[in-house]
Design a protein around this nucleic acid. Structure first.
Lengths: 331, 331
DNA sequence: ATGAAAGCGCTAACAA
DNA sequence: TTGTTAGCGCTTTCAT
């Protein structure tokens, strides 16, 4: 079959151990020998078998990434951050989509542990006891990215969603002292619960009584945004502004408003969340919360490498900064 | 350390071989025995080691996917198609970004072969001799997705870019018998060469003499589109329509036109390519070529499974249908 | 239907 | 500096 370390050893008149040392850059090899071995490796076209190596060394230099949906503009940037840092540290990543389904998540964790990944970056809605149990069945580090952990046991990288939502809502209230609408996805999804809390807190601090009719739930998609805003506009007194849980949904909201013959921001202001690329691809461009998605992925992966190397980490829970980015969809 | 097949065998009073059979669903096991083994597996929390299994069986149930950029809206949908079908056939996928850099691509192929993937889905700009060589150093099947192979040796899944571009251009010419502008990325990138050929052929068939000044190259990004269209509008006689190589770029083109105080489609028509999600997130919504990205990924992966199972395939080169989707950016 | 045993290709003591 | 050798955890003949 294919060339093994044994073939190289024979051809170079050395032992397997020496070849192994050369391949792994072990300094205890005489330069002459190294050169000779390297030459025969080249000549034979030897390619180390990472599976065998993994079995012997108990390290696969592969990490798992569990992600809700790679085709989402939000998560794909996160994934890029993870990948880039993984590559930088010579890891490969096995990526799998969970669609935020708990059973899929649990199953994926299992599969990845079977594959002996050296660590896992997990992105999802929420962490439950069951997740924790599943993680604990193996001894590999796990880092959460853009995922909140109610049990607060796992290392994680996030922004402060609640404060961000608070700021967005306050920003909207500042101008016109009225309750903005809030268009969002399910509470169990992607920190939406925290956003809701921030929204409510901002209202409270501004002494505005919460009218739940102005809170509309729908899918976090473009069409979900359109549908939701239609519902909002049908209300007897529709609000002068809307805070939307994601940018893509917010773009739908803007278009839904425009399709009703209203103007953004003149008639209704719109505030998004995430600053994905679509935010500047709408007219008016979207005011939003800048969440450093790429960085969240990158920092999470970096954190994971630390755990995998058994370095000690100072911050197990990283909170990355966010900020309000004003564009043209608000006054 | 952790539970091995040996532990299970001992606890269940059977041999390793029997446990292996149970785990692998081999029918040659007495039901009683199977039950007993299953019970101890459960009790011990045994989890098969896929690395050891891979070494022994020479199959990893893992495939590699080399992709230009997972954060691109185009490729991330492709990736989702790949992932879904991979999951369906019990494969995991190692995903890596190449940024269309040839050296990265070659290196990634090498790494994946080291990891003993059972197959590779490759997405990139163009396939060169060097790629072919690298692929041939191992004995695993490779399928190209949305990637053209000038050497035409590898199985692939594509749409007919040239015809699609021909149709788009013809569509634009039909109305106003004038040469549309063509805004595109580099020729070596992502089938842009083929699109150019289709564009030129359409002009020729319409007896319009090609004016190269109307062909503008820039990055295939939103900002690239803006910059390119500014350049186009600065021409003494700017064209009545533009064909743009990708949707994201086309959205930039639309906004660039609008920012100059011109209207789409009244003053200039815009035609995109790919039908990514942004196409319906612009106003006016974008007329474009529907390219079934998810399906390209899915079909490519399905094709790969056939090769991996040594089934025989009837079409080694799959061309998926495309179509013109008229929206509001053209008259 | 079950077991014994020989690898799979490599790493990592331990010896020399 | 180099070689010997015993695993790593599993699959897969080949016996029985």
């Amino acid at each position: 079959m294919s060339i093994t370390i044994y073939d190289v050893a024979r051809e170079a008149n050395v032992s397997m151990a020496t070849v192994s040392r050369v391949v792994n850059g072990n300094p205890n090899v005489k330069p002459t020998t190294r050169k000779k071995v390297l030459a025969t490796i080249e000549r034979l076209g030897y390619r180390p078998n990472a599976v065998a190596r993994g079995l012997a060394s108990k390290k696969t230099t592969t990490v798992g990434a569990i992600i809700p949906d790679i085709s989402s503009i939000f998560f794909s940037e996160l994934a890029r951050g993870i990948e880039d840092i993984a590559t930088m540290y010579k890891y490969n990543v096995i990526l799998s989509n969970s669609d935020q389904k708990k059973d899929k998540e649990i199953h994926l964790i299992d599969t990845m542990l079977e594959k002996q990944v050296d660590g896992i970056v997990f992105m999802g809605g929420e962490i439950t006891e069951e997740h924790i149990n599943q993680f604990s069945t193996a001894n590999v580090p796990v880092v959460l990215a853009a995922t909140n952990d109610t049990t607060d046991t796992l290392p994680s990288v996030n922004i402060d969603y609640q404060t961000a939502a608070y700021e967005a809502t306050s920003h909207l209230i500042r101008k016109n002292k009225q309750q903005p609408g809030f268009i969002t996805g399910g509470e169990h999804i992607q920190a939406n619960g925290l956003k809701y809390e921030g929204y409510v807190k901002a209202l409270k601090d501004a002494n505005i009584e919460l009218d739940e009719k102005l809170v509309i739930y729908n899918d976090c998609t473009y069409n979900g945004g359109i549908t939701a805003v239609q519902q909002l506009l049908r209300l007897s007194e529709s609000p002068p502004s809307v805070f939307v849980a994601t940018d893509e949904m917010a773009v739908g909201v803007i278009h839904g408003i425009q399709d009703e013959g209203l103007r953004v921001p003149e008639d209704i202001e719109v505030f998004g969340f995430n600053n994905t690329r679509v935010a500047m691809m709408v007219r008016p461009t979207l005011t939003t919360i800048v969440q450093p998605m790429y960085d969240i992925g990158a920092v999470a992966m970096r954190l994971l490498t630390k755990y995998m190397n058994k370095e000690d980490v100072d911050e197990k829970t990283v909170v990355l900064p966010h900020r309000v980015l004003e564009r043209d969809s608000t006054k």
